[in-house]
Amino acid sequence: MICHSTDSTFKQDLRSEGLTLVNFWATWCSPCRMFGSVLEEYDATRQDDVRIIKMNVDENEETSSFFGVMSLPTTILFKDGKPVDKKIGYMPKEVLAGWVASY
């Protein structure tokens, strides 16, 4: 299940153990909407190996700024609560799955 996080809940939503995928997006961003569909499809077919969090950058500027989000969509992979990799732009589901599996 995809979690929609906010600046005030982000620390609690981020898994302290295992993998968490955080997608920074905006409603006006066309590639974000396309990638949102990929995330939903990925979420429906995966095991509980990774938690998926979506952060609307227009509503959560503090967290977006903290992680240096300049382009959308930006997706950051966290392992045990710490960022380990960042991808910018749209990814097909196979690329996303491969990226997550590499950690």
Rank of each mutant, 00 (worst) to 15 (best):
T63G: 08
A44D: 05
T74K: 15
I53P: 00
I88C: 11
I52K: 03
T9L: 12
I52D: 00
C32M: 14
C3K: 10
V50R: 04
S65I: 15
V100G: 07
V57K: 11
K79F: 11
G89N: 09
V69Y: 10
E41D: 13
S37N: 11
D58I: 10
V57R: 13
V95E: 08
D80Y: 02
V84A: 06
A97W: 06
D13E: 15
T9D: 11
M55E: 03
L96P: 01
P92D: 13
I2H: 00
V22C: 09
E62R: 14
P92L: 05
G36Q: 00
D13Q: 10
I53T: 08
L21N: 03
D43H: 11
N60P: 15
N23F: 01
T63M: 07
V100K: 04
T27R: 08
G81L: 09
K54L: 03
E94N: 04
C3E: 14
L72S: 14
G36L: 00
F24E: 04
P83W: 09
Q47W: 01
F78Q: 01
E40V: 09
V69D: 01
T63S: 08
S5M: 03
K54V: 00
N60G: 09
T27G: 10
C32W: 07
F35N: 06
G81R: 13
S102P: 03
P83N: 05
M1Q: 06
R46W: 09
V84E: 06
D43M: 07
S5Y: 00
L96V: 06
M70W: 05
D80L: 11
A101K: 15
M70R: 12
T20M: 00
G18V: 07
V38C: 12
M1P: 10
M55F: 03
E40W: 07
L39N: 06
T74A: 14
W99D: 02
M34Q: 15
I52H: 01
G98W: 01
